[in-house]
C-alpha cells in the first residue's frame, strides 16, 4: 500500500535505557555529522527530528517549587508525513533500517527494525496523541519538489522570453513545457 493522505503529524516518546543516555547522544550526533540524513530515505516525510528530553524542561519562574525532574531520560521523535500513522511506521522501518536501531536501540523495549510487527507495535504503543495540528499545505513531498522546480523554470522562462513576439512565445513555451501537464 502506497496511499498518501494530508500531511499528518506523528509523535513518539520512548524511555532511554538507564546508562545508555550518552551512547544515544553520540549515536544521534553521528547521524547529524554523517551527511545525508537517514530520514531522506523515508517516503513522503516532510520533516523529522529526534529530541532528548531530560530533567525538568518545563521548569520556569512561577512554577510551584514542588515540581520534580524526570527520573528517566526520554527520546522524543516527531515527524510530518503524507501517510497514515501505520503506513508511516512501516516507511520508517524500511527507510531507516539500521539507523532506527542506532537511535531507538537505546530505548527500553525496542525490538529492532527487523521485527516488523514488533517495530510497529512498539512505535504505536509509545505514540503521543496530537490534539491540535496546523499545516500550511497538504501537498506531498514530491508535489512540493515538482512545484518548486516548475516555479524555477517559469521564472527563467519569463526572463528569457520577455522580448519575443507571440509566435515565438508559444513555440518556446511548448518547447519548454510541452511534456508537462495535460
Amino acid at each position: 500500500m502506497n496511499a498518501t493522505c494530508p500531511a499528518t503529524p506523528f509523535t513518539v516518546l520512548t524511555p532511554v535505557v538507564p546508562g545508555e543516555e550518552q551512547a544515544l547522544r553520540d549515536a544521534l550526533g553521528q547521524l547529524s555529522r554523517a551527511g545525508a540524513s537517514p530520514f531522506s530515505r523515508v517516503a513522503e516525510t516532510h520533516v523529522a527530528r529526534w529530541v532528548l528530553v531530560s530533567g525538568a524542561p518545563w521548569r520556569y519562574r512561577g512554577l510551584p517549587r514542588r515540581t520534580r525532574p524526570l527520573r528517566m531520560q526520554y527520546l522524543l521523535f516527531t515527524s510530518t508525513a503524507n501517510r497514515p500513522p501505520e503506513q508511516h511506521v512501516e516507511d520508517l522501518r524500511t527507510g531507516l533500517r539500521g539507523d532506527a536501531d542506532a537511535a531507538w536501540g537505546h530505548c527500553v523495549g525496542y525490538p529492532g527494525y527487523q521485527e516488523s510487527a514488533g517495530f510497529r507495535r512498539y512505535l504505536l504503543h509509545n505514540r503521543l496523541p496530537v490534539h491540535r495540528w496546523f499545516a500550511a499545505y497538504d501537498a506531498t513531498v514530491r508535489e512540493v519538489g515538482d512545484a518548486l522546480d516548475l516555479r524555477r523554470r517559469h521564472t527563467e522562462f519569463a526572463v528569457r522570453t520577455q522580448d519575443v513576439d507571440d509566435l515565438r512565445l508559444q513555440a518556446a513555451f511548448l518547447a519548454e513545457f510541452a511534456e508537462d501537464g495535460t
Binding site: 544521534l28 550526533g29 516525510t45 520533516v47 527530528r49 529530541v51 528530553v53 512540493v144 519538489g145 518548486l148
Partner: peptide, 10 residues
C-alpha cells in the same frame, strides 16, 4: 528543548 537530529525535505 534542543533537537539531537533534525531533517527537512525542502
Amino acid at each position: 528543548v534542543a533537537g539531537a537530529h533534525c531533517w527537512s525535505a525542502h
